[in-house]
């Protein structure tokens, strides 16, 4: 554990809790992509099945359980409790275009051929692109609520901080995993446009709207 990793995890946790808070407080999931949330739930489920097979630390297990619970909770709020507020007309990204390539790639570029390892690899690839339906939705509606922007910023920062963590781990522990690094870089690049808009608009107190 190092400071970059810890900040990354906390940023990730903050993002997930911000989203739940937003939906609960406004009693609405308007502007949130249910498809992105579904993809994240698939990601956590595929990756954290190792809760049953390996133990790393209490911190690790607790965070995994929180991420899993929060993501299923978010789906429950979006597709059941506040379903009438879900803006599905604007959430039209085809997620099979993301799931199928991620699955295929996880059979091609993978460390070892075991079910758990392929599921883990699939989760890494899918996570890298899981935000695309949400970004697509923002671009279709041309705007995002401020709290949604904070959510996206925290979520994007998490993987960027993980990149710093990987650089740090490379120098201090000789730890290197190209699968997570490449996927993490792709994931962070996808947020770049958004980061720019966030810094130039939201931080100056303006609502995020596209030109």
């Amino acid at each position: 554990m190092n400071i970059f990793r810890l900040c990354g995890d906390l940023s990730h946790l903050l993002a997930i809790l911000l989203l739940l808070f937003k939906i609960w407080k406004t009693r609405s999931c308007a502007g949130i992509s249910g498809k992105t949330q579904l993809l994240f739930t698939i990601v956590y489920t595929a990756r954290y099945l190792d809760l049953f097979t390996s133990f790393v630390s209490v911190y690790n297990s607790v965070m995994k359980i929180v991420f899993l619970t929060a993501s299923y909770g978010t789906l429950y709020l979006m597709f059941y409790k506040f379903k009438p507020t879900y803006d599905h007309n604007h959430d039209s990204f085809r997620i099979l275009y993301l799931i199928v390539p991620a699955l295929v790639l996880s059979f091609i570029i993978v460390h070892v051929y075991t079910v758990m390892e392929i599921l883990w690899t699939f989760s890494i690839y899918l996570e890298a692109v899981a935000i695309m339906p949400q970004l697509f939705m923002v671009s279709r509606t041309g705007e995002a609520e401020t709290i949604t922007s904070h959510y996206l910023f925290a979520l994007g920062s998490y993987r960027a901080l993980y990149i710093l963590n990987w650089i740090y781990r490379y120098y201090t522990e000789d730890f290197l995993d190209w699968i997570t690094i490449m996927a993490g870089i792709v994931q962070t690049i996808l947020y770049c446009d958004f980061f720019y808009l966030y810094i130039t608009k939201v931080l100056k107190g303006k609502r995020l709207s596209l030109p």
Partner: peptide, 10 residues
């Protein structure tokens, strides 16, 4: 470091 045994990240 063997990343397969690592999996200590979230």
């Amino acid at each position: 470091g063997n990343p397969k045994e690592g999996k200590d990240e979230l």
